[in-house]
Design a protein around this nucleic acid. Structure first.
Lengths: 333, 333
DNA sequence: CTGAAAGCGCTTACAG
DNA sequence: CTGAAAGCGCTTACAG
């Protein structure tokens, strides 16, 4: 069943059928009607490969997501998909491992599939600096620091990771904690870890302390990563009374490790996470966390992208605000 | 940059370039070499729209997933993506809401994109009975009851939901519980809920009880759904000492509701979940649950699909086994 | 408002 | 082993 069959069946030429199918203005009401009937009768759907080949682009917006098991991202992806559909485009999700070079992959995807736009969830500024210049597709970098990235087709939306990291540790100091541990990603490999760590350092300085190396423990962004890191930290620095984890998932793992070591949270040790995923509000104890605004992130990114695609509006770097959720996992000393 | 440019640059005809690109046997080593160099120099990637249009099909295997926030599915999706890539195909994930008709959407996707194969994660037998006949693409129905579905291009892989539901409740009886509540999906709309419920009913009968209607509470498959359902249940049947939730996510919500009502889990009320997601092993208390074998489900489904595509092996209905994880959320009375 | 025709970038018989 | 040519199913100037 092709457009040719529809043409034959309806008595119109293929060009007219094509125009009717695409809602072009100059098609008579009668032609529209008759063609619609035939289309409906056969449940015809145009072959998108042919259409896209001809048009030299698809109607797809590709989401490039680093880490499928990232609960924080999956909440955003869900909302983005809805927004993209309601704008008349199709969302295609492409998952990458944490280590993959998202910009390299994006370049290949563009040549292969000619998407209309790209949404990067997570990503490293270094990769963008190195090879984003080759990509001409309108893009938005979401929840990754896009500062200093100056490309005519790259917007960014995200929080201030330094300020957010500082806020987390400030909160622990405000609650009277003095021995504060940090669990986060490898600084040389994860830019957000680096920035949040810098925020921690500032908070320590502001409170008259220096952030000693042994108080920081590297972990992968997973339950198991948080678990092992907390074990290490408790062993190495048993005096620690509070820990800041750079993701809620890590915080869940860390809390479990504390409990398995016979410590209660928050009575014996306090934990604050980062992201504000839904799980945190059901976990026991409810997670204290720095919440990123998922809804805003999704909405602003899609808006920026769509208006760039449709109206060629200039790119922007839009900051969004975090919010401290107190939860139940931090106690005042 | 097209195959034509590569042809010009390398001095060969487009047909030779195409053959070289696709690793066809009868291309001279020299031609292969020279063409590969040009391809590498320009970072050329063939336009997949053109290729797929010509070949009348893509190299895509489409995953149709009901519910993006379904943690149980996302674990499987991750593994499937790896397996699909390592078999030389590309995985495309398409998320649907719980209410969508997956078979209707699949039909459209097939006409539009001509995928090589379809993997359904979740789905309702009724939808398949009604319109799967129109789909000719090799397919596998994963983790949804495919019994009695007799199509020459539909395999299925999944657990025995009746037996699994029975096992969950049997376990609670074995631990001495007598007043047992059930939280699950709407029976008329969710087939797995129906089957698991039937298993519960059998367990009750085997233990000389009848499963009374008020002991069952409908919920959506979410944290919030489990939370509200547990509130209802505690209000309506305060004598209940144990609850079986038809998903781990629901169980997390239910436990939180119990604790917010001042009850400890498992001391005051026991909870067992279903699925065996990673979170359950870090939640406090560790979740008792009926674990579905994610790895096996992913592996067997992809194997069935690929061998059907490549060697036209006949379809099969493969059962997999669940495993009871005791966790810490159920106590013996 | 409608139709005939060119062409998007590939693949693949067919001929040599 | 290589090349010239047809054609996949669409869209879109162009002509009328």
């Amino acid at each position: 069943m092709t457009i040719k069959d529809i043409a034959k069946e309806s008595g119109y030429a293929v060009s007219t059928v094509s125009r009717a199918l695409n809602n072009h203005p100059d098609v008579s009401a009668e032609a529209k009607e008759r063609i619609a009937q035939v289309v409906a009768r056969y449940g015809f759907v145009p072959n998108s490969n042919a259409r896209q080949l001809k048009q030299q682009q698809s109607s797809n917006i590709v989401l490039i997501v680093k880490g499928i098991s990232n609960l924080f991202f999956s909440g955003i992806v869900e909302q983005m998909q809805n927004l993209i559909s309601s704008n008349g485009y199709s969302a295609v999700v492409h998952y990458l491992s944490e280590e993959a070079d998202e910009v390299l992959v994006a370049g290949q995807l563009c040549r292969e599939h000619k998407p209309l736009g790209l949404l990067f969830l997570g990503g490293n500024a270094e990769n963008f600096e190195r090879r984003f210049g080759q990509i001409e597709t309108p893009s938005v970098l979401v929840t990754a620091p896009g500062k200093n990235l100056d490309f005519p087709n790259l917007s960014s939306v995200g929080i201030d990771d330094v300020a957010a990291g500082r806020e987390a540790v400030d909160y622990l100091f405000a609650k009277g904690h003095q021995k504060i541990g940090i669990i986060g990603g490898r600084l040389c490999r994860s830019q957000i870890s680096q920035l949040r760590f810098e925020g921690c350092r500032q908070s320590f300085l502001n409170h008259g302390q220096e952030l000693r190396e042994e108080y920081f423990q590297i972990a992968s962004f997973s339950y198991a990563g948080g678990y092992r890191a907390m074990q290490e930290l408790m062993l190495r620095c048993p005096a620690i009374s509070a820990v800041f984890c750079m993701s809620d998932i890590m915080a869940v793992g860390a809390i479990r490790a504390a409990q398995d070591a016979g410590k209660r949270v928050p009575q014996d040790v306090s934990v604050i996470g980062f992201d504000g995923i839904e799980l945190g509000r059901y976990f026991c104890p409810r997670l204290a966390t720095i919440q990123q605004p998922q809804g805003e992130l999704a909405q602003i990114s899609v808006e920026l992208l769509v208006s760039h695609i449709e109206k060629n509006t200039p790119v922007r770097a839009v900051p969004v605000q975090v919010r401290l959720l107190e939860g139940e996992s931090v106690r005042a000393l």
